[in-house]
Amino acid sequence: MNRPLVEATALSKHFHVGPAGWFGRRIGGAVLRAVDDVSLRIMPGETLGLVGESGCGKSTLGRLLIRLLEASDGHVLFDGADITGLAPKQLRETRRGMQIVFQDPYGALNPRMTVEDIVMEPLVIHGAKPDAAARDKVAAMLERVGLSARAASRFPHEFSGGQRQRIGIARALILRPRFIVCDEAVSALDVSVQAQIVNLLQDLQQEMGLTYLFIAHDLSVVRHISDRVAVMYLGRIVELARKEELYAAPLHPYTQALLAAVPAPHPAGRAARRAARLRVAGDMPSAINPPPGCRFHTRCPHAMAICREVAPPLAETAPGHLAACHLLTKTH
C-alpha cells in the first residue's frame, strides 16, 4: 500500500492556563490537555471525518496537522517528511501543500480586501507578481467554485454566507494544495446552502485529487462526505473506522451514545425510539484535569473498575476498525 499523506504520531497539545507572573511566565496553574497522545494516518485522496463535541480537541488537532499550532509533543509527517521541527523558510514551502477552510464565513475574510486580493494573497506570498496572469488564475478559481468573475472586485460584505464560504475555498485551493483541513466548513451555513458547499467540496476533491480532514459536529454530514471517521472525546481518539462500519456497528459506548442522540430524520415511531435510546447523562468533563483512566468513564453506562484506573489503548478490534475501550479488549 502507498504511504499516508499525513501521519501524526503521539501528537499532543497542552495549553497552560492560570495566573501569569509579572512578566508573563506562568506560575503554577493548570494544564489543559486539548489533544493528548493522538496518532492517525490520512491516506492520499481519502476524506477522514473527525467528529466530537465542542471542547473535545478536534479543531486543535486539525490545526496541529497543518502546523497552525505548534505541538507540545509528538510528530506530524506530511508526505513522509517530518514538519514538526521545520525552520520558517522550509515551512513556508511546505504550506503550499496544505490549507484550511474555516467555519465562520464572516470572520474568515478580511473585510478590507477585495475578493481578488483575498484569493490572490497566497500566490503573492509564494512569489507571484500580482499581474494579469495571477488575476486570470484567480478568475478561473472563482469560476470553479461557482462565483462569477464580477465577484473579484467586490468586498466580502457584499456576499451571502454560502458565497463567502466559496471565496474561502477558492483561497485555500489557489496554491493547488494536496491536503485540506475543513474545520466545521459547512456548520454555520443554512441547510439549503450547506448541501451546495458539500457537493462543491466533493467535486473539487475528485477533480484535484484532494485529501480532506473534515472536522464537524454534524454526524450525518460527516457520514456523507467521509471515507473513514474518527471520533474524539476529551483530547483522545476513541474510535476510528470505515464509515459504514462505524455508523452501522459502533463499538465504543461514546460513539453509540453520540449516534443515538442524533434526532431521527422521520417522526415515525419516535416514542418507542425515545424509550429505547441509550442515553448518556451529564456533560463532558473539562480537559483541565481530565478524569483518570478512560476519560469517558464518568458518563459511561458500562463503566467498570478498571476504567477508572487504566486508560484503554486505541486497539484494532477488527481489520481497520480501531477502538479504545476495556469492554472490547478484555474478551480478546
Binding site: S160, G161, V191, S192, Q194, V198, H224, P265
Partner: peptide, 23 residues
Amino acid sequence: GLLDCVPSLEHDRPRLVAIPGSL
C-alpha cells in the same frame, strides 16, 4: 428541498440534492 438536502445517517447518497441560490 429542505428534507432532501440533509444527508442521511443510515445510507449513502452519491450526491446531496441542493437547493440552488441563497436566501
